[in-house]
């Protein structure tokens, strides 16, 4: 996939909007997932409905990758995810959930189950927030809030599960 062009459309001077299928598709996707303005002519309410449907779908997919994070948030999961993900293009379900868990941790609102899941993931993988996570080769200890996870030879154990 090409990344050597700016996100979203760059309309030629004097044009009403992006021209050509490629530019018009890029403008629509940017409006749906990256907070860019909606190109002229679309029914705003319909595209808004599609945007909300996309966020619900993404929330379901991320919940499959981060079941404890989603379970820990319970009924608040769809809204919590949508609030975080709106205007933020996906980096894939694994990384979306990871980034959200870290954001909640930094805000002090990561539920206990999510903290344990995050600690276990971080003990097993190295993730810099920009590139795909990579499996750690060496033993590692990871902490998220009260949760502490140890990874030895690929096996992860929670040393200090948080109190329930």
């Amino acid at each position: 996939m090409s990344t050597n062009r700016p996100v979203g459309p760059t309309p030629p001077p004097g044009a009403a909007g992006p021209v050509g299928l490629a530019a018009r598709q890029a403008a629509l996707v940017a409006a749906l997932v990256a907070g860019a303005p909606l190109p002229a002519g679309f029914a705003t309410d319909r595209v808004d409905a599609a945007r909300r449907a996309l966020l619900r779908k993404r929330a379901g997919e991320v919940a499959r990758h981060w079941p404890l994070l989603a379970a820990g948030l319970g009924d608040a999961w769809p809204a919590t995810f949508a609030g975080w993900a709106a205007g933020r293009p996906t980096a894939g379900s694994l990384r979306d959930g990871w980034d959200l868990a870290r954001a909640l941790r930094d805000r002090g609102t990561l539920p206990q189950l999510g903290a344990e899941e995050l600690a276990a993931r971080e003990a097993a993988h190295r993730y810099d927030g920009r590139n795909p996570p990579r499996r750690r080769r060496l033993p590692a200890l990871a902490r998220s809030g009260d949760a502490v996870a140890l990874q030895l030879a690929g096996r992860v154990r929670l040393l200090r599960p948080t109190r329930r």
């Binding site: 996939m1 090409s2 990344t3 062009r5 996100v7 979203g8 459309p9 050509g20 299928l21 490629a22 530019a23 018009r24 598709q25 890029a26 403008a27 629509l28 996707v29 940017a30 749906l32 997932v33 990256a34 599609a50 449907a53 996309l54 779908k57 993404r58 997919e61 293009p89 996906t90």
Partner: peptide
């Protein structure tokens, strides 16, 4: 289409029903 301009839509998006499409 599901991506454009380097962004993933995360879902199946409709095409304009044009000759170009």
């Amino acid at each position: 289409f599901v991506r454009a301009g380097g962004l993933e839509a995360g879902h199946l998006l409709p095409l304009p029903r044009t000759r170009e499409a």
